[in-house]
Amino acid sequence: MSSRSDVADWRTGSVRQCASLCDTCIYHPGNRAHLAPGRVQEITQAAIEAKGHVVCHTTIGIPTPAICAGFARHPIGAARSLALRLVRAGAARLQLITPPKGH
């Protein structure tokens, strides 16, 4: 995984996650991100199947990308995400971040 999308900082033993939904989060009710119908479900299902996560779009391309707070709230997504499972198992520490503005 490239450092641009790696939500883990193995030097500190932490996994970054947004503490709250960003203003245009795909998991807000409605369609603030103007995605095609069914796209959120496709994104979520692909992450679940890969045992991965959805990176908050406002953190893509910055040095500290983070798991989307909306995905982290998804009961199946949170249960299947390897990064979040490592946190629950105590192998990594959860680092909550405030999503950047303006993306």
Rank of each mutant, 00 (worst) to 15 (best):
M1H: 03
M1I: 14
S2I: 15
S3R: 08
S5L: 15
S5C: 12
D6T: 11
V7P: 07
A8D: 01
A8L: 08
A8P: 07
D9V: 03
W10V: 12
R11V: 14
T12M: 14
G13Q: 05
V15F: 07
R16S: 00
R16D: 00
R16F: 00
R16K: 11
R16C: 03
Q17C: 13
Q17S: 09
Q17I: 03
C18F: 00
C18G: 06
A19R: 14
A19S: 15
A19D: 14
S20P: 06
S20K: 08
L21V: 03
L21W: 09
C22G: 04
C22S: 11
D23H: 05
I26R: 03
Y27T: 00
Y27I: 04
H28M: 10
H28K: 09
P29H: 05
N31L: 06
N31C: 11
N31A: 13
R32M: 05
R32S: 06
R32H: 08
A33R: 09
A33I: 06
L35C: 06
A36N: 12
P37C: 04
P37V: 04
G38T: 04
G38D: 05
V40C: 12
Q41M: 09
Q41R: 12
E42G: 14
A46E: 02
A46S: 10
A47D: 09
A47I: 01
I48M: 12
G52M: 13
H53L: 11
V54I: 05
V55E: 15
H57I: 03
H57D: 03
H57R: 02
H57F: 08
T58W: 00
T58K: 01
T58M: 05
T59A: 06
I60N: 00
I60P: 09
I62Q: 00
P63A: 07
T64N: 07
T64V: 10
P65I: 00
I67Y: 02
A69Q: 06
G70L: 03
F71W: 12
R73D: 07
R73I: 03
P75D: 08
I76A: 03
I76W: 14
G77K: 01
G77R: 04
R80G: 00
R80D: 01
L82C: 12
A83C: 04
A83W: 06
L84Y: 11
R85V: 13
R85Y: 10
R85A: 14
R85T: 10
R85F: 11
L86M: 13
V87N: 01
A89F: 14
A91M: 15
A91Y: 15
A92K: 13
A92L: 11
A92C: 15
R93H: 11
R93Y: 11
L94K: 12
L94I: 03
L94W: 05
Q95R: 08
Q95S: 07
I97Y: 02
T98N: 09
T98I: 04
P99L: 10
P100V: 01
K101V: 06
G102K: 12
G102S: 10
H103E: 01
H103I: 07
